[in-house]
Design a protein around this nucleic acid. Structure first.
Lengths: 180, 180
DNA sequence: TCGCACATGTAACGTGTTACATGATTAG
DNA sequence: CTAATCATGTAACACGTTACATGTGCGA
């Protein structure tokens, strides 16, 4: 999924601005499986307009900067849906935390414990976000997709919490505090 | 995780060649959370050698091309472990399949069914690979990491198989075959 | 008054991918 | 004979990130 198609996907559901697209791709329903930043969204929208897959109109607002509202065209809808007919890219999972865990034996136990706690907190946070998104019920496919995310993330969380002590136990023991 | 650190991680466990590093990062124990191709590995190894984090020696082989075997230095070990002390990058999950599923309502049911079947097969394949890797038991942290992957992947697979019909049901119905 | 939210956009930079170039041996 | 595996490396290219530039209104 490149930024171009992410823009089309979001515009498929209704007109918005580049600013909003970034928000949606970072915090919205797509956030757990795509990503895009301003530096890629704005140029992508410009090219999309050149290619007549979207149109734009400038909306003057009082006070705030003018908004450039983009709408998808029929050609845009077709192009996006067509892209889903082709061979899909493989799913990608990248994790520096896993590399960290892989080398737990070389790291001090307290560091491993802290990082594990951080990771667990991050996953819990992520789950909460998806749960919030699921509440404002929208389309069925959206619920389905959110369901995949929640299910996997909860399984991930379960493993981490149930096995964290095991990993800490593999780490380099840290001298007990000088107390006593 | 950049390619540089992936190389160091693999060399941490023992000397090898760029060719082997790619194999390990693509098919080996690291494959499910990192990725690297020749075009990035060879330049990375060259820079690593300049920086004295690895050394190399050329091994003449009969018939096959000469192998350039890299070994990590003490400085390399330190640099790698140090990198794990710093703030870790967030985990990343990217999936075009999820985008596809999100727009199931715009797609023909048979396509959705096929793609789901493909995805399920791919996940099953991936699970099998991790199971194979887990058999040749190595270090405990490696087993732990593999455990995370297997656990999450199995949960993912379960969701897909249990909910595939639901998603197909959301897709555009395809005219039944002309048969009577 | 400080910083955040809104809002758009560019430029430099980093990083990695793909395809190409090269070439021998071995298994089918 | 053909394809695959072993093996290294480069160059062109694609893609995206980060930081910067610019500016207002509002709430704490």
């Amino acid at each position: 999924m490149n930024v171009r198609n992410i823009c089309l996907a979001i515009l498929f559901e209704g007109e918005t601005t580049g600013y909003e697209i970034r928000k949606l791709s970072t915090e919205g329903e797509y956030s757990y499986f795509v990503e895009a930043s301003y530096g890629s969204i704005y140029p992508a929208l410009a090219r999309l307009e050149e290619d007549r897959l979207v149109t734009s109109r400038v909306e003057q607002t009082t006070g705030k900067p003018a908004r450039k509202v983009y709408s998808i065209t029929e050609a845009g809808r077709r192009a996006f849906i067509d892209s889903l007919f082709g061979k899909l890219d493989d799913d990608v999972y990248r994790s520096q935390f896993m590399m960290f865990a892989r080398f737990a034996a070389e790291l001090p136990a307290d560091l491993v414990e802290n990082r594990l706690a951080e990771r667990i907190a991050a996953v819990e946070e992520h789950i909460k976000t998806l749960e919030e998104l699921g509440k404002k019920r929208t389309s069925d496919p959206e619920q389905w997709v959110l369901g995949v995310g929640l299910h996997s993330l909860r399984a991930h969380l379960t493993y981490l919490t149930e096995n964290k002590d095991k990993l800490v136990g593999m780490a380099r023991p840290v001298a007990a505090s000088a107390a006593e």
